[in-house]
Write a protein that binds this DNA or RNA. Structure first.
Lengths: 339, 339
DNA sequence: GCATCGAATCGAAGCGCTTCGACGATCCGG
DNA sequence: CCGGATCGTCGAAGCGCTTCGATTCGATGC
């Protein structure tokens, strides 16, 4: 743990010159800068974090609040945490993780102790308590997800409605007239902000095309997933020629398994499209068309906005919706000729 | 963001008195302390993190390095991160998350900038590069997991060998003479430190009882998990009357499904015991006996050791293995009478 | 040849806290 | 009733850095 003073001595300059050389905030003669950089490298010098925070009024830390509730879908959440942390590092920021009840209490604590320059909010609930908190604290806050009441907040998210609509578009274009939708368990529609948006997007776009549509939200009924199997059967037997899936990877696998059990080929007999998946839909048999939820897209934008706020640049409050893209893998085709 | 100076003025004392009253490091008259606490509460005062770090030589931060590799089993890793963060909060510590390549680079960075008081290492590989790093940096480091070369390191982990042995004990006592073992995919035995330990524990204990045993490490072959199904069939048809499972929850579910498909009842025809599971084995049908891996146990011990190191108390280097416990749920029984 | 200017560097003042040593007041024993 | 503990409180010295204003020096213009 070398100190700036030692670097200064080694390079034969004053400590302020070292500081300016390393931060680049004032011009330094090329030769001097070289000597300083070399000394710093040799001593493995890094500015002391505490001193830097105190003097520089920057902590270089983002607080990431992510409740990690017991029933959360771990892989997706992990993907967001990872994506945020990678995006933050691009700006030389570290990520402080606030989980569970600390997601709120920690947010307050971190804000009033000045431990973080900004707060990023993940796993947003429709009536999230962190919304009120965000309005109260003086630390810039960015939501990755859209709470019901988002007045005055900065929010970033995939345009889930458009994503579902995009899936419907593709199927309608292929000639499908009757679509089935398999969603998350009903509880997810209370707890999370996005499942209702996907459902709405599906329903509204299907309606606008005058398509028949049916929505099933199977319960999470243990590892056998009988709910999902039943849903597939009901939808297919009800005449759906295409399924739109917005559920976890296990449910995807089970749905495909059930289609196979029913002797329906994908895509010849039934088309399948996944919406809002964070996992790899090419790992299924067959690979599934996807309108994915890309964590890095949301997180990078969120981090960029957070940086702008930290830098005091003007950032308009409001919801930034990221346009979805469709990634085909051959799991949709025209419907079979009516039997 | 009130400052200590404002609290002092509000309470009519000097700032050092405020500091001592709030930290409890010197006796303060009860009445004075009350006034100070009240003022602090009213102003929502929290010591500035940077100033505290600088003056107090404590950052109140643990760095948690967790690579989060793409192929890691998200739920288990999330459970460890969560457990660590909860354990840390008990000591008023926050957790800084270092993922991916930052797991190593960040460890170095954090150590030399004094951003964290200690480093906790998760998802330990047998030949983990963080081992060398840990020896080089001056920040106390605790491993949750046991790398091959752990000379001089402080490591904490479940005693996986004993866990597998415990499962074998139970089955042997019930009279089973032939055991099957379903493990993780072969790659996991290179990448992670604990699968080989479970396997070894199983084999050695089975051998010491003179039991027949067979080990299968099914490939992760996509959502259909045909490898696991095949493994179950092979083992059962090979005469195993009990299965020891050390694999992810999906494989558990598939294994049970396959047993049902084979018309083998659990536990009447085949006993099933899970080893090292972080998930809830009572969610299966039927609920499965478990010798679980309890993240909070490892993480709490790790955090306690880290605290001792931070406090300069003597901590002996070495591996601390946590004794396993068996949690029966009715999925094992005596083997069926020989047919 | 002298005032002027810009570039490069330096010194010193904090940032907000913890902690050390000191000090006044109160208490006790003798 | 005085000397010495003891208790509670205070002032001031840092912690290691950033940043502001000042200074130095060679180059430039007139």
């Amino acid at each position: 743990m070398a100190k700036i003073h030692e670097v200064a001595k080694a390079a034969g300059v004053s400590i302020s010159t070292v500081s300016y050389a390393l931060s680049g905030k004032r011009p330094i003669a090329p030769d001097t800068r070289r000597r300083i950089e070399e000394a710093a490298r040799e001593l493995d010098y890094r500015p002391n974090a505490g001193a830097r925070m105190l003097a520089g009024r920057r902590t270089q830390i983002f607080a990431l609040t992510e409740p990690f509730r017991a029933d959360t879908h771990a892989p997706a959440h992990m993907a967001f945490v990872l994506a945020t942390s990678i995006a933050a590092r691009r700006y030389e920021y570290d990520v402080l993780l606030l989980t569970e009840e600390e997601a709120s209490a920690g947010m307050r604590r971190v804000a009033s102790s000045g431990l973080a320059d900004a707060v990023l909010v993940l796993d947003v609930a429709p009536d999230d308590e962190r919304v009120a908190l965000a309005r109260r604290i003086s630390v810039p806050t960015v939501f990755i997800g859209v709470p019901d009441d988002h007045e005055g907040l900065v929010c970033v998210d995939l345009d889930f409605e458009a994503a579902a609509a995009l899936a419907v578009d593709g199927l309608a274009e292929l000639g499908h007239r009757s679509l089935g939708f398999i969603g998350h368990p009903p509880a997810a529609y209370e707890r999370s902000n996005f499942p209702p948006r996907v459902r709405r997007g599906f329903e509204q776009r299907a309606d606008s095309f005058g398509l028949e549509r049916a929505v099933v939200l199977p319960e999470a009924d243990g590892p056998r997933r009988t709910g999902v199997r039943q849903a597939v059967r009901d939808l297919v037997e009800g005449g759906a020629t295409a399924l739109v899936l917005h559920c976890d990877d296990g449910a995807h696998a089970v749905a495909l398994d059930e289609l196979a059990a029913l002797d329906r080929r994908v895509p010849e007999d039934v088309s399948v499209v996944s919406v809002g998946a964070t996992f790899d839909t090419t790992a299924f048999v067959p690979p599934i068309d996807s309108v994915p939820l890309v964590p890095s897209a949301s997180c990078e934008l969120a981090v960029e906005l957070a940086m702008r706020l930290v830098d005091g640049e003007p950032v308009e409050a409001g919801v930034r919706l990221i346009a979805p893209t469709s990634v085909p893998h051959g799991s949709s085709a025209p419907p079979p000729p009516a039997s």
